[in-house]
């Protein structure tokens, strides 16, 4: 501040463009003549910013931020819910699939059982028929055998009677028949 007086600073402020090389302004920061002016306007600016910020801007931004936070939380909850629903739907689908599979299995088993039953019935019927036929045949054979036995007995009686008569003796039919049947049994 040594080289410039109060008046110098003011003169510099107005006509610095005109004094090109000649007069150096020194440090304008240290020209205390306009400190009052700067401080005045600075305080006005600061008070203006403070009022604007504390009344309008900061509450607004704070509300926007909290609102966004809320929206994000809500959206996350909704997404979680949707995810749960999707999982439920998947579970239901899987259940339905499993049900259908067991149903199909059951139908297959039923059908198989039915066929088996039919088959069994048919087999049984055929078996029964076969058995009946066999019994019939056996009966026929037994009859034939009986008949044959009868015939043999008769032939034997006849033959015995003939032999007895040929030997010159006579015997009644009853005696001969008894003897023949006794022989045949023995």
């Amino acid at each position: 501040m040594a080289t410039e007086t109060h008046g110098d600073g003011l003169a510099d402020a107005t006509g610095v463009a005109e004094h090109a090389a000649g007069s150096a302004p020194g440090m304008p920061q240290l020209d205390f003549s306009h400190w009052g002016n700067q401080i005045f306007w600075l305080l006005i600016a600061l008070v203006a910013i403070y009022l604007i910020l504390s009344r309008i801007a900061l509450p607004r931004i704070a509300s926007v931020l909290s609102e966004r936070q809320g929206t994000i939380t809500n959206d996350l909850a909704a997404a979680e819910e949707l995810k749960l629903k999707a999982e439920e739907a998947e579970a239901a689908y899987n259940q339905a699939l499993a049900d259908a599979r067991t149903e199909a299995q059951k139908i297959i088993a039923d059908t198989k059982a039915e066929i088996q039953a039919d088959l069994d019935a048919a087999t049984a019927k055929a078996d029964a028929e076969i058995a009946a036929r066999a019994a019939e045949s056996e009966k026929a054979i037994a009859e034939i055998r009986d008949n044959a036995l009868q015939s043999v007995t008769e032939v034997a009686k006849d033959t015995a009677a003939e032999i007895v008569s040929a030997l010159g003796q006579s015997a009644d039919a009853k005696t001969i028949a008894d003897a023949v049947s006794a022989r045949m049994k023995g």
Partner: peptide, 20 residues
């Protein structure tokens, strides 16, 4: 003139700088 850029000047002309 590195310090000339810091000179405080009245906007409306004139050479007095009162606080207002």
């Amino acid at each position: 003139h590195p310090m000339d850029q810091f000179i405080v000047k009245p906007l409306m002309g004139g050479d007095k700088i009162a606080f207002y």
